[in-house]
């Protein structure tokens, strides 16, 4: 049952843009790209938030670290995007570990505010550091590439296939992220993260180093955010503080995760599939015309969120998963 859903879902994800592309539309490919990037970040956030159970409102810092690392390598040294992505992920994971370890002394809300603190400190650094372009940021120049393969290798798509190219790139990264996180979930890490979430003292009593595993969880989250940041930077052809250190890069994935089911591997995808198209459709229908710029789309979006919250008292975590997918219990539970 679950396997069938996976196969059908994968096929749909691969095939749906093709007729659209033939028709000459690119809009839904871009929506798909945004859905996948949000879902991917959500899957990453699930590690620290859903499994390890720590309030982390600052992962967008590592979205920025990834974007800047890859952009710097590309602009200053000519390093290709995918190598830059690996470097960005590594840099984010290491920086995150160094910054987070001392913070693990703090618990609960105090830890949550400390993650916000790092974000608040990162913003003016990004806005004033000349080497990384300060407030102007960095522009990522397009280079000429030989055909589709060249574009894919360089992670640079342009013209009518731009949206499609980035959609498939996001799909590949999303699939990789889910595969990796599925492995993490079943490994010792997954067990230890959830043990710390349920009861930190009890976890320590069976030999789990809670500070170390919290750092590991957050660094994994940081790595996923960095990968997302690199992808986004090459899509946007630029990196600047107000764009990559934007709060939305944590709130949107968190909301997608909450809607789809916190702590569930596929939850963020479900949430992103629900939330992102709504916001996109709202902005193209209600955000244009005479009322453009008056925020009508975001009012409706906010209302939808409020209504979802109000009528699912325990969040959407209580969606009847078991009834939908037979008696098999999802592995994340």
């Amino acid at each position: 049952m679950a396997r069938l859903a996976l196969v059908l879902g994968t096929l749909a994800a691969i095939l749906y843009p093709i007729p659209l592309q033939i028709q000459g539309t690119t809009y839904y490919q871009t929506v798909g790209f945004l859905v996948l990037i949000t879902a991917m970040l959500g899957v990453g956030w699930n590690v620290i938030g859903g499994w390890a159970g720590q309030f982390d409102f600052g992962p967008q810092v590592f979205f920025g670290v990834g974007a800047y690392t890859a952009a710097l390598l590309y602009v200053k040294l000519g390093v290709e995007a995918w190598l830059g992505l690996l470097a960005g992920v590594a840099a984010a994971a290491v920086i995150c570990a160094v910054l987070t370890y001392p913070l693990t002394r703090l618990r609960g809300h105090y830890f949550a505010i400390s993650t916000v603190a790092i974000w608040m400190i990162a913003q003016p650094i990004g806005a004033t550091w000349e080497y990384i372009g300060a407030a102007q940021g960095l522009f990522i120049p397009m280079k000429a590439h030989a055909g589709i393969v060249g574009s894919a290798v360089a992670l640079q798509f342009s013209g009518p296939t731009k949206a499609l190219g980035y959609y498939y790139s996001a799909l590949v990264l999303f699939a990789l992220t889910v595969a990796l996180m599925a492995w993490v979930e079943r490994s010792k890490l997954g067990f230890y993260f959830r043990a710390i979430r349920d009861d930190q003292e009890a976890a320590e009593s069976i030999g789990i180093d809670s500070r170390l595993y919290k750092v590991l969880a957050r660094s994994i989250t940081a790595g996923v955010f960095a990968a997302g940041g690199v992808l986004y930077a090459f899509w946007a052809l630029s990196v600047f503080p107000e764009q990559v250190l934007e709060l939305n890069w944590s709130t949107l994935p968190i909301m997608a995760t909450v809607v789809g089911g916190i702590g569930r591997l596929w939850g963020p995808l479900l949430g992103a599939v629900i939330l992102i198209p709504i916001s996109q459709i709202m902005s193209t229908t209600l955000g244009t015309g005479p009322l453009a710029g008056r925020g009508i789309d975001l009012i409706v979006y906010g209302l939808i969120i409020v209504v979802i919250a109000a009528f699912r008292p325990t969040g959407l975590l209580s969606l009847p998963w078991a009834r939908w997918f037979g008696r098999r219990r999802p592995a994340a539970a």
């Binding site: 959830r194 979430r197 349920d198 009861d199 009890a202 976890a203």
Partner: peptide, 10 residues
């Protein structure tokens, strides 16, 4: 533990 501390959601 005096007051049980099982990992409730596991």
């Amino acid at each position: 533990w005096q007051v049980v501390r099982a990992f409730g959601r596991m």
